[in-house]
Design a binder for these strands. Structure first.
Lengths: 203, 203, 203, 203
DNA sequence: AATGAATGAGTTTTCATTCAT
DNA sequence: TATGAATGAAAACTCATTCAT
């Protein structure tokens, strides 16, 4: 019935992709395992050949997506760019995910807290924070960024800004076209690095 | 008669309080109506005399909390403070809720997307955004804030920063003691308004 | 829908009775929880108000039946009857269960080994053995029974004989009418106590 | 060709052996076809080249075991031994199976009633009963055994005793070492033939 | 108002069996 | 012969909601 020429890796990827689309559409709890299987064009039982449970499907999506994002962030971190430019690139990595796969972003943003064993994904997210934190701290050491600010809080503020922009897009609160994404990428760094204030106010 | 209605109001409030604690502990989906009832010390059937469904319980928590937050924000907005001070106060309103009722914050943050009538909560949050946006825009008009920045994005960045700080506290990633709350309140405004950059970089 | 005048104890008993009939007809594994509920005329969910699981249904049947049988056996044990008469009475207790409730016997015999946590019921059955063993040992001390025989093995032989007679009845291998039951009751003691041999052979 | 068919026969036997071990360990229902295949070191699909279903696996175990047991019993029946000696030998056949293959006994005893074609196994067991019955009847005709006893019931009692001893060993209630097996073999005949009574009581 | 017995829809997961390779 | 991917039937259990009392 099913095309036997599809190999294991392809099928696994197909199921993961189907899960992202279905979870994005119905939410993790609202989606049935059978929905994911249908979306992938297979019987629901097959899902259990590739993943041990519905939960593992979600976990895998988190793990693999974050692994890719983290790798990209680390590359940025190791570059010789100025802190501001590094932050811009990190912002781009996160925000461009929206352009590449809005469904994925929807799942990532909506289901963060649902993490069945939110252990795993939180560990990954924490690493993202730490990368940003290190970028800020290095910028401070090089005299590019203000030293009196707590790098950890700065990372939280920056990451929160990114996540909220994604949320704005997926809720339709913010325009999310190609140009808007590029604009947001620039603006978020401008705001966080340049500050809202017209005149510099002594901290 | 009066006594009865006072008791009714008290019971309603008790059920809401119980729901907040239980939802915070187990999550909305993980919590059973019976858990809420037990926590409040009544039979589970009684919940349905006060609320039409489990969903309505969550909705009510959202609605009433946001109503209070929004009212407080509007008051800030109508004050004569400078934009920066107004933002500080808005930040304080959001962050201080954590000190007052961590369980409530946990529910608000974790279950945003679970909202049964998602629309409703989005509307509330949008109003918060808009309040911040108006504060920023007014600040720009008065020449306090840089005019080249999109007030809407600025609002998203600021609100995202606040929410991420709450999340950090929730997950235990960020220290959440009394002093830390005060510190975060100051820092978030300092970062967003003052910028991370040491030297002002031309946008 | 359901008659509310039925009280809890009655309903519990009704469910247990329904379970016995259904398990007898379809076997424990072949029976669905819904079958038991239907047989009792209630919705399947209600079963879980009275029993925590399908397994517990079976366990309860074992436990309560054996408790009754054991109580009856202990009474026999405490009587002043001769060993042979005591054994006859114990045999009667076991075999008369067939007359009283053939379905119950069917479940007891067929599902002994299925015991999900065969812990509980085996403890009860062990006690039955021990009661028979004590009866034999007492008979030996009083000089009524041959002393060279191991009372434990004697108990196993006697109990095995009883169980096999029940099995014969429920498989239709042995006639199981009123008179046959009475006859078997007499015969099993005659064989086990009197021996098959015509002439006494020296052990 | 010959090699192939030898291998086929070996594989079939290996699968049956694996099935016995697995069924003994997990019970028939608890065992998966894949477990049997793993135990035999083959893919689960291969089981279906040798047996048409999981049920047939169990059936075959029953059928082949009983065929051997029945053949041995018939040999005993046709000997010129006295009835008592014949019964001892029948007992030995049944009980010695325990020493030879405890797993097999476990399956035979635990899964009797689970038999998919229950009818089949019952037929086999009936033949065992009948063999014992004929031995008793012949003994009565030869004046060795008491004539007033029903040979059919006697057979049930004797077989029940044997089965209960096996069960006792299975559950660890009875010591099952080499010497114990020999002792039980002697004792069961002594009890059933010699009777428990010290003095012969008129029936 | 309050209780909790009763209902029944809903879903994940297991696993025997099939079959293309 | 051998493999294991694929199928899909089947069922226990949960729990929101109702409603007689």
């Amino acid at each position: 019935m099913t095309d036997r020429s599809v190999n294991q890796e392809q099928r696994r990827a197909a199921l993961l992709g189907a899960a992202v689309r279905v979870f994005a559409r119905k939410g993790f709890h609202g989606a049935r395992v059978g929905d994911v299987a249908s979306e992938a064009g297979v019987a629901h039982g097959l899902v259990y050949h590739y993943f041990s449970s519905k939960d593992e499907l979600l976990e895998t999506i988190f793990r693999e997506t974050w692994a890719a994002l983290l790798a990209a962030m680390r590359e940025v971190e190791e570059s010789d760019d100025a802190a501001r430019e590094q932050l811009r690139k990190v912002g781009a990595i996160v925000l461009r995910t929206w352009t590449r796969d809005p469904d994925l972003v929807r799942v990532l943003v909506n289901e963060v807290t649902r993490g069945p064993q939110l252990q795993q994904e939180i560990a990954e997210i924490r690493q993202a924070f730490q990368a940003i934190e290190r970028i800020v701290a290095a910028g401070q050491r090089r005299g590019e960024l203000r030293e009196e600010l707590d790098p950890r809080l700065a990372a939280v503020v920056f990451y929160g800004a990114l996540e909220e922009i994604l949320t704005g897009w997926l809720l339709g609160e913010l325009p999310g076209g190609e140009a808007d994404v590029a604009e947001a990428e620039r603006a978020v760094v401008d705001i966080v690095c340049g500050g809202l204030d017209r005149a510099r106010v002594p901290a």
